[in-house]
């Protein structure tokens, strides 16, 4: 049998059942047949109206909080702001003067910002107290930053990540940052120059700190080893002088150096042909070289030009 036929029989069936029921009622108190039943009698309509009971909304918890409650146990860890748990009339953002600030309820702005309700001073104090038994005493000799830097030039920074999740591992915990002051490596000018070329932007000239970040190995220990290895290789490579390094010309210099420059050569040629030289020649030449170097390294300004002029005048003996 095809499905449409089946549906047809079922309709027929239900109509016949209805008829039998109505006939029964007619027998009891002789009631009239009503072909259009009222809405309350409609079975289908009644079925659609499922029993729905509203859960009662309790008043906010904060109303019942005692004034001397233990706040760190109410708000123990970092979480999104909840208005019913915080007994404070908070709002977020700038409010025009004279206008009532918005309440803390149904205020999404308060939920967007991070809060520090779990880091109240008593909470921090309590955590410190709890951690104290794991700490050792600070060595008395290391009382200044200079001493610390001198005895412990290497600084290794790692991060531990604690959160509630199925695993205690966090991939970010493997990252190791090694920092060292370049002056503690005792490099000469060549080695320092080479090291800076090798490390590029990892060196901060303002603080003189070299920063190496190792994160290529899966474990922290491996990354620490790798960072130490890198430092070793960098320093030993810097101390080497390769044969091609002699080919460094003036254009490759990072700073103008007067010794061996074109300026020095022309000055020597000039001095050879000068008939009467200035009496304090070495000093004058030194001053001249300083001024030319300043000219190139510090950029040109009126002061530099005048200093250069003074030194040239002395050099050429025109100041008499």
């Amino acid at each position: 049998m095809r499905p449409c036929d089946l549906r047809g029989t079922s309709v027929l069936l239900s109509v016949s059942v209805l008829f039998v029921q109505r006939a029964k009622r007619v027998c009891d108190d002789f009631r009239a047949l009503d072909l259009r039943p009222s809405k309350s009698n409609n079975m289908r309509g009644n079925r659609r109206k499922t029993a729905y009971k509203k859960t009662p909304v309790h008043p906010p918890r904060s109303n019942k909080m005692p004034v001397d409650q233990d706040w760190p146990s109410v708000w123990p860890v970092a979480r999104v702001f909840h208005p019913a748990s915080v007994p404070l009339p908070l709002h977020q953002g700038w409010v025009e003067p004279g206008i009532t600030p918005p309440g803390k309820f149904a205020n999404a702005e308060l939920m967007k910002i991070p809060n520090f309700l779990h880091l109240t001073p008593p909470a921090i104090q309590r955590q410190c107290e709890a951690l104290k038994k794991f700490c050792t005493e600070w060595p008395k000799e290391l009382d200044t930053d200079e001493k610390i830097d001198h005895h412990f030039p290497l600084q290794i920074t790692t991060s531990d990540y604690l959160h509630s999740s199925p695993t205690i591992r966090d991939a970010r915990a493997r990252i190791v940052t090694l920092q060292v002051k370049l002056s503690t490596l005792n490099l000469n000018s060549h080695a320092k120059d080479k090291l800076l070329r090798l490390v590029k932007e990892r060196y901060d000239p303002v603080t003189d700190i070299l920063t190496l970040v190792a994160e290529r190995c899966p474990l922290r220990k491996q990354n620490i080893d790798y960072a130490m290895y890198l430092l070793n290789v960098l320093v030993s490579e810097s101390w080497k002088t390769e044969p091609w390094e002699n080919e460094k010309s003036e254009a490759d210099m990072e700073k103008y150096v007067w010794e061996g420059s074109q300026s020095q050569r022309t000055l020597q040629q000039l001095l050879e042909r000068m008939p009467n030289k200035a009496p304090d020649l070495p000093e004058v030449i030194k001053q001249y070289s300083v001024n030319v170097t300043r000219f190139h390294n510090e950029g040109e300004d009126t002061e530099n030009v005048n200093a250069y002029k003074e030194s040239v005048i002395k050099l050429l003996g025109l100041n008499a």
Binding site: S263, T266, Y288, E300, T302, V305, Y308, K309, V312, L316
Partner: peptide, 24 residues
């Protein structure tokens, strides 16, 4: 950009004239 002699002469020109007396 600048009227000062080193800028105006450039590196090549400066090396050509060096040592010279700049007069403002």
């Amino acid at each position: 950009e600048s009227p000062l002699p080193r800028y105006q002469l450039g590196k090549q020109g400066f090396e050509h004239l060096d040592p010279f007396i700049p007069i403002e």
